[in-house]
Design a protein around this nucleic acid. Sequence first.
DNA 1: TCTTGCCTTGACGCCAGCGACAAGGTTTAA
DNA 2: TTAAACCTTGTCGCTGGCGTCAAGGCAAGA
Lengths: 130, 130
Amino acid sequence: MLIGELAERAGTSTRTLRYYEAHGLVQAQRSTNGYRVYEEAELRVVREIRTLLDVGFGLDDVRPFVACLRAGNSSGGVCPDSVLVLRRKLAEVDAYIDRLGAVRQQLNAQLTHAIAHREETCPRKRQSAL
Amino acid sequence: MLIGELAERAGTSTRTLRYYEAHGLVQAQRSTNGYRVYEEAELRVVREIRTLLDVGFGLDDVRPFVACLRAGNSSGGVCPDSVLVLRRKLAEVDAYIDRLGAVRQQLNAQLTHAIAHREETCPRKRQSAL
DNA sequence: TCTTGCCTTGACGCCAGCGACAAGGTTTAA
DNA sequence: TTAAACCTTGTCGCTGGCGTCAAGGCAAGA
């Protein structure tokens, strides 16, 4: 399988695949003319990468999952290193959710306050600055 | 008040203040030697900007709040344009929280699955790649 | 033979909010 | 006089995950 086919089947671009390879995530043999040749298994690897990136992982976070797949597992998440990442990410997400909750409250408070003070002086339509 | 003093009192850098000015958020007179001279009121403006940025606003989102302060209000959020931004941001935050909730569930599911399949084949310690 | 459509390796652009450095002018204190 | 501590504009760097040319090689059908 050449890079174009893999890209299409994985729903990405060739640029993306080369980028992943440059960062050590995707592997390819080379045919005599220098073309990248991929095995079927790489399709799963690429899909794993994509789904994890979609969830907010960085490329570095994805590495253990790829290694785990390469080790022959049906899922990239079952290996110890992956589990560590999963736990860390889960903690990050929780922290972020908390923070967003606080932000949400602030915004709500501002809105409430604003509605209680409608009648104040406000900038007129659109005069050029100054 | 010169730029260094404003920076210190606002807890930012001079670079940041020039950046805000370049983007039309902060205003300054110029003394004869070309130095920026700020009025006291700019301190509140800068603080408003900072708190909003901390909450996840972009510079463009902040503009109405600054204009609102300049119009003489005690709070930057009481003007109609600001309220629009507040509502929009609130919606964005809500959407983001929802998404993070879904992500959280996925991560949890992965973890649960991983724990149920501990015994699978995993990559050994740290061999150099290949 | 020529075109078409693959593939290759660079290398710059993007977004956002600055940090950091360069090269210079001004004012004050020692 | 000279150093110290301000200030000025300008420009590049940074982070991440690519998009998007650019310039060229290879394979195959008309």
